[in-house]
Design a protein around this nucleic acid. Sequence first.
DNA 1: GGTATGCCATGATGGTCGTCATCGCATGCG
DNA 2: CGCATGCGATGACGACCATCATGGCATACC
Lengths: 182, 182
Amino acid sequence: MRYPEGHKGSVRATIVAKAARALRAGGLAGVSIPALMKAAGLTHGGFYAHFENRDELVSEAVLAAAHETAARVLSPEIGDLDATLDAYLSIGHVEHPEVGCVIAALGTEGRAQSKPVRRAFAEAARGFVRLLETKLHPKSAAGTLSDEAMRLSAQMIGAVVLARLVDDPALAARILNAAKAH
Amino acid sequence: MRYPEGHKGSVRATIVAKAARALRAGGLAGVSIPALMKAAGLTHGGFYAHFENRDELVSEAVLAAAHETAARVLSPEIGDLDATLDAYLSIGHVEHPEVGCVIAALGTEGRAQSKPVRRAFAEAARGFVRLLETKLHPKSAAGTLSDEAMRLSAQMIGAVVLARLVDDPALAARILNAAKAH
DNA sequence: GGTATGCCATGATGGTCGTCATCGCATGCG
DNA sequence: CGCATGCGATGACGACCATCATGGCATACC
């Protein structure tokens, strides 16, 4: 069929959005192209009309996931630092990695990926610390990162990773609460 | 050939040890059985004489890696807490995940694995916090975990994950140093 | 020293993956 | 109203995977 203007672009955007979700749920290597396309309501055939290769989609999905979490948890309008900590260090975040922080969901997989994917993770990681910096010190000069922002970023990410691994809801909740101290 | 007593057991141990290294380097899904066996100096054929299936090897490799790091970095004879922090939060650790902490190397992959593998990760995670607890409070009752041990565990793991992702040696070093505060 | 043993190499099988070529078809344009 | 357009479905290809069946062969035992 002849498709309406901009159709292809919007389809591409939904593929990226659904992939961002599916990859966080199943791991970077755990979801195939057929599965990713099915998540977007399509079959595998059209994939290469939208992306050069699988890594291009993975890279964009990582960035999309990072922006999504930034807007939901780290953006200024969420509230002060405590509001961000409460949202990030929550049971809901631990139980739903598919809509949570991409670093806490896929962080350790980034290192072993191709260069474009590694670049996406690098940008996500730097963006995380940068946003936390502006929450800690709203009037700090752009581009400077305080030790406190780096330390607290590590603490938040590590806490969610640990809480997801211990396989014990009560202990997970204790880890999250312990990580709210700063 | 007729092999000397205990030969099979020692071969199995070297397969696990080499797999622990290869999996931390390449990711849980990034190394195939042929590759894992080649790392141990064998071909893929004999694999199922040693393991029920791939997940059994992965589970054992995760535990072996955890014990290895515990002995090298977290054991009492390393020194006090500062010695452990210096070793864990070092450039060498960031640059060599294949011999480093299994949680910092593979932590986010654990959640999406089969039950035996998840159990291995859960034990590794709990063991990490437990060992840090005895370093922080040597005379605390066995089995109790302080908020401080959980918070600092998260901070250490998150710092290494972040440092590996930012793709900037100078920034990585700053993150590591920032995470030495407690 | 002959022989039975059992570990491991060779090789096959079915399935799935990433990638690509082809085609049908519904609709926006003339 | 007919037709050209271009998106996406169908299907094929080679590669690689996990798993398993078979066989060779060097040695520890009798």
